[in-house]
Amino acid sequence: MAFIPDWWRDFHRRFPGTAQAGLALAVVLLAGAFFHAEGSFFEWGTHRDMLRQVSVYGILACGMTLVIIAGGIDLSVGSVLALCGVLFSLGVIHWGWPGWLAAAMTLGVGALCGAASGIATAHFRVQPFIATLAMMVFARGMAKLVSGGQKVSTAIQGADGSYEYVPTPASFEILNARILGDNIAIVTIVFLLCAIVCWFLLSRTVLGRRLYAIGGNEEAAWLSGIPVKSSKVLAYGLSGLLCAVAGMCQAGQELQGDPEAGAAYELTAIAMVVIGGTTLRGGKGSVGLTVIGVLIIGSLEKILSINAVGEETRLMLTGVIIIVAVMFGKR
């Protein structure tokens, strides 16, 4: 078709799926401009809050993208988030650790959880669905165990049942703050950094190429000498590492570690990845698409929320939009 300019075709070839996902986002934003709730939609504060709210999901979705592109799935992200949030809170509140030490410990535990799922999948040939399902249940149990089934907050209960109050740790205040003239939340910056790192990993490193190859055709990848097992373990390990980042962000924003946090977050994260245009079959997609998917779901929720739309309608609309966006993305 001669009337399509070259630069547009070039853009399509270099960034497959981006135009479709971008269009879906534009449609959602247009709906927002229409249902603007007395002008609230046109205020930056509304979008700043939306970006804060999706950041934790977005961080999980970045890790999920790595795993899905390699042909897997990670159902454990919500539970590992809870475990990491609880551990981080215990570190900085109860044990009085400095923020960096608690963060390092939390990142280590998150990566270990991910790597354990990866090892089960790659070395013991357990299906990713089952391996990460097992981790989902295990990590939730462990989150409850280490927290004693209660939220880990700045009110510490003594043996006699009385409470001692400690000041909110600096690391929590930092994660809950906004910068750049109050215009963007720290957690949003963390999300963007995670997205950039994952984008770099996938598109500019050997590991990235290997993950695409494994997701595309695992046997062919193995035959061509790609270390399939270790690459997969790395992908799951990175997903676990990002769960730890998300868990710290969640705890920082809630000012407490909640062992029940993150329930069903894995489903939202998967939906964000898929709406962006990354296929569950593996081998195709990108972190850029996931970021667009995150923005689509976040904006949609925000529009429904500022218009105080009832829960029934919200669920139905979200379902319709997921299916329309995915069908649309297949063109």
Binding site: A37, E38, S40, E43, G45, T46, D49, Q53, V56, Q250, Q253, E254, D258, A261, E301, K302, S305, I306, A308
Partner: peptide, 15 residues
Amino acid sequence: LEPNARKEMESALAR
């Protein structure tokens, strides 16, 4: 859920 409440409250504050 607390995170949902925070999200909805942000919308109320915006409006």
